[in-house]
Simulated assay, not measured.
Amino acid sequence: MSKLLEARDLRKSYGNGESRVNVLNGIDLDLEQGTTTALVGASGAGKSTLLHLLGALDHPSGGTVRFRGDDIFRKSDRELAAFRNKSIGFVFQFHHLLPEFSALENVMMPALIARVPRRDAISLASALLADVGLGHRLTHRPGELSGGEQQRVAIARALVLSPDLLLADEPTGNLDMKTSDGVHALLGDLQKKHGLTLVVVTHNERLAAAMGRTVHLTDGKLELTSI
């Protein structure tokens, strides 16, 4: 396996002076291509903060993140936005679908932003919606879909540009157990089919157990707990 991402001495703090809060205190983490990792820890431990740094949604206070050897935070804001759109897929607890657009249109959106021809974007989005079991719901808007279906649309959207890295932040946090199990299985199937590197922040022990390894975030530091 080849190394996809390498984080070194990654730190993040908020505020200044006496009000300064250190959230991450020197994180070292390697992600190999095609592997799966669960990131666990207590609420407020900084799991989402770390995920946002790995996905370049936020800038660190110190340290580096290298993606295929390239220091991503040396990029300009425009270059960083293009990198995120092409190389990283995001799935959040709240799906953030656009309510006025259909499932197909929501999934197409990143491709259109990346200037993929509309016909190709429709083809890509349709195929992914079929992959997540929603090939019959292309024209339905989010308000016409169940919570589990909306999250499946969000997963398809995250994959439409064939990212190398998929970051999922509590992807089943708002779902009941049965629906959660379906989304867990779907993530596993899609990870294998697309050869994704997958990192999941979760409190769900069953989802964490299904990942190739688990790392625990405590006091701003990571501890490998299983592999």
Rank of each mutant, 00 (worst) to 15 (best):
A121L: 06
L54R: 00
D9V: 14
M177L: 15
S76A: 11
P117Y: 09
L97D: 06
G46Y: 00
V116S: 03
Q150W: 02
A111F: 03
V40L: 08
I88G: 00
M109E: 14
E100I: 12
A185Y: 14
Q33A: 13
G89K: 04
G63T: 03
G220S: 03
S126F: 07
V160T: 09
D181W: 06
A130R: 12
T49D: 06
K193P: 05
R141W: 11
V107Y: 14
S19F: 11
A154R: 04
L217H: 05
A121G: 01
G133E: 12
L53M: 03
V160Q: 03
G62T: 10
N22K: 08
I122D: 14
V132K: 01
G173V: 04
P99M: 12
K47F: 07
S102W: 07
A114E: 14
L54H: 03
D164W: 00
H59Y: 15
F73W: 12
S87L: 11
R84V: 02
V200L: 10
A130C: 14
Q93A: 05
Q150E: 05
S126T: 14
H216T: 13
D120K: 15
V153G: 00
A42L: 14
G195P: 06
G26F: 04
S180F: 03
I122Q: 14
D120C: 13
K75H: 14
N204T: 13
A125T: 06
T49W: 00
G220A: 08
A208H: 01
S180A: 06
K192I: 13
V107W: 06
G195Y: 01
L224G: 15
S87A: 15
S48P: 08
A185F: 06
P117K: 00
A156F: 01
L124A: 11
L167P: 01
S87H: 13
T64Q: 09
G188V: 08
D120G: 11
L161W: 09
A125G: 09
L54M: 04
L161V: 10
E170Y: 03
G143R: 13
A210C: 02
N22W: 10
Q33L: 10
K192V: 15
G55N: 10
D58P: 02
F92S: 13
R119P: 09
I72Q: 01
G182R: 05
V201Q: 06
A168H: 08
V183A: 05
R84A: 08
H52N: 14
A81G: 13
